[in-house]
Design a protein around this nucleic acid. Structure first.
Lengths: 173, 173
DNA sequence: AGCTATCTACCTACCGAGAGATAGATTGGA
DNA sequence: TCCAATCTATCTCTCGGTAGGTAGATAGCT
């Protein structure tokens, strides 16, 4: 895929972290990339398709990382919390799919489907790594909510406090 | 306060559950209530103030409920999970403040402050009910994320699976 | 009682800005 | 020559917000 399409998705992903599907515009993306808004439409016909593509790429990248680390024998708890911790520690400290997921009631069909696929994939990877389905659901909720609460409180330490301690001690027992 | 102002906040709260701050407009709210958009401005000068008022009211209502149930001797775990379970089970199954919180990076100052106050209040109530600060952070993240994931998967059962089982068994030990 | 002033809660009409999207011309490399 | 990629220019729609007016209730004064 061309570099421009990737740059467009990069810009969209970044802006999505702030305001979800309604938090970015073709003109903003175009300015970020250095082209005109009509050229963005050339690569992604509609806003819906652009958002869906961003989520899809994000999911693929996460899946690849998780698969690699699980194959290396790492604990699935660590694999997923660490993967999202990277997002939390980065500049805009919020997973774009989580933002979309929170507002999923008002999302266009195609985007909602990709978001659904993303969360399902996370659960599948955790179960594949040895967790019970309910454990997977709880861990994913913990991570997702940890990002939301830490973003809302503007305190990244909250993510660590919310995701690590009790889970670890429970498993240690 | 007049009934109209409440109706406006009702409509805004409902629509916020779908798309957060960018997910509603003065005209939509006006249509919902049955007045003109300029009349909405009469009650709430700006969109920022309307959103902030909605969050504030939502927080007050939750605080009242939580205080009442804690005073009745209920377990703080149950009190908060049940309070949000009510939201999950209702028609639009998502807490509006969670949606705003997820997109808090792009929120106007006044709204972000109210959202922050909301989550801080939740943590305070839990600690006041006897939880350790880290336990409170984990429970709140669990509840918040449970709502996000269950909304994204369009499956309300996910909220229960994510919030209840392991916490209970851990405390039973 | 009668008049005036003020206030509330709405209205119509409009503004500039920006949205997503489209049509059609242009450019440049294979 | 053809096609991918980008442009300019423009469409219609909706946005948050403002200006100015009006009906009706209330309050204060004489």
């Amino acid at each position: 895929m061309s570099t421009i399409a990737d740059s467009i998705m990069d810009a969209a992903e970044l802006r999505m972290r702030g305001g979800g599907f309604n938090g970015f515009s073709f003109r903003e993306i175009a300015d970020d990339v250095g082209i005109k808004s009509s050229s963005v439409h050339y690569h992604f016909a509609t806003k819906e398709k652009l958002a869906a593509a961003v989520v899809h790429r994000y999911a693929d990248r996460l899946a690849e990382r998780v698969d690699r680390e699980l194959a290396g024998g790492l604990d699935p708890y660590d694999v997923l919390t660490n993967a999202f911790r990277g997002t939390v520690r980065s500049a805009n400290r919020m997973c774009p799919v989580t933002v979309l997921g929170a507002g999923s009631l008002g999302l266009p069909e195609e985007v909602a489907a990709e978001v659904k696929r993303f969360f399902k994939m996370c659960l599948d990877k955790l179960v594949g790594g040895g967790l019970l389905p309910d454990e997977a659901a709880e861990l994913l909720a913990n991570i997702t909510g940890g990002m939301v609460v830490s973003a809302a409180l503007d305190d990244i330490a909250t993510y660590d406090r919310a995701t690590v301690k009790l889970w670890r001690s429970q498993r240690a027992v």
